[in-house]
Simulated assay, not measured.
Amino acid sequence: MFNYEVIDRVEKISKDEFYNQYYKPQKPVIIEKLTEDWPAYRKWNFDYIKKIAGDKIVPLYNNDPVSADKKVNEPDAKMKMTDYIDLLQKGPTDLRIFLFNILKQVPAMQEDFKFPDLGLNLFKSLPMLFFGGAGSNVFMHFDIDLANILHFHFAGEKQCILIKPQDTKYMYKIPYATICREDINFDNPDFVKWPGLKYITPYKAHLSHGEMLYMPEGWWHYMQYLTPSFSMSLRSLAKKPSNFINAVLNIFIKRNYDNFMRKKQGQKWIDYKNNRAIVNTNKAINLTK
């Protein structure tokens, strides 16, 4: 098992404290009571979501490995929000909602939250919701835009594992993608099969209703829903020029090239990338020894 670093927890924090102690050094933190004066703190539960957004058709994703016949972020299914919440509350399911845009789908929900003044230039048009059932998880990845993320959790319990970008060379990262080898079990890592994991420093966070996790730009994250629940992410552009450049390359070059090669070579392309992930990490290990 990993030896986890503990993420700082504070009840509240000033703009200057957040900026100097966490944003500037790119360090994660959990702020426990940032949302207590939001209407969302009282209102955001599954009954409310069904009432205000129950008729919306939502895209659903499962944990199947990347397939050559699917584009990046292509949903596995769709259904009404009401039916999906009923499914969540009946029992475990691996179907999740990913990147549900509040402003586009349910504009009235914007009245329920505020954009916190923490010194970040947050995108006002991109508040996104994420839903999952008990036991479901979001594979280890980093966000394609390398944004700074404020991740607010509601209506249940969630566990997050974070890994700093400096450890990417040991993560069996898939080329032209923002994921690592999908056959790695981060809940119970096999250090013999995946020796690079011995060199990483993971952080663990437990989130309850109303708590916010700050994830600095480019940090890997693996999310596990302990109970049916949902979260909202707000984001701002990458602070480091190199990360901003890489974000542009990820979105406009690498993603399109990857989709093109999947279409052209199919499973052969997937197998090639999976193999390169091992080769590249082994090189990093050899240089570290």
Rank of each mutant, 00 (worst) to 15 (best):
L234D: 00
M171Q: 08
N243I: 01
K158S: 07
N20W: 11
W220Q: 00
S125H: 13
L237R: 08
L60K: 02
N246G: 10
L226R: 04
V6E: 15
D55L: 09
Y61G: 01
D190N: 13
G218K: 02
P189L: 04
P59N: 09
I285E: 01
N282C: 10
Y222F: 15
D190I: 06
K12S: 13
E32A: 11
D143R: 03
C160G: 01
A40Q: 07
Q89P: 11
V10F: 05
T82L: 11
P39W: 12
D69G: 09
L287E: 15
H209K: 06
S136Y: 04
D69Y: 15
D143F: 01
S136F: 02
N62V: 09
F98H: 12
R181Q: 04
A108D: 14
L146C: 13
G135Y: 07
N45I: 02
E17D: 14
L226A: 07
I144C: 02
M261Y: 08
E17M: 06
K78A: 13
D258E: 09
F191A: 02
E36S: 12
R262P: 00
D112N: 07
T168S: 15
T93K: 02
K33N: 13
I52F: 08
L34N: 01
N286W: 06
I184Y: 07
E11F: 13
E32R: 14
M223N: 04
P216T: 09
M81V: 09
F18T: 00
K33Y: 11
F130S: 02
D69F: 14
T35Y: 03
V6G: 07
D112K: 07
D64C: 11
P39N: 14
N246C: 10
M79P: 02
R96N: 08
N286G: 10
A238S: 15
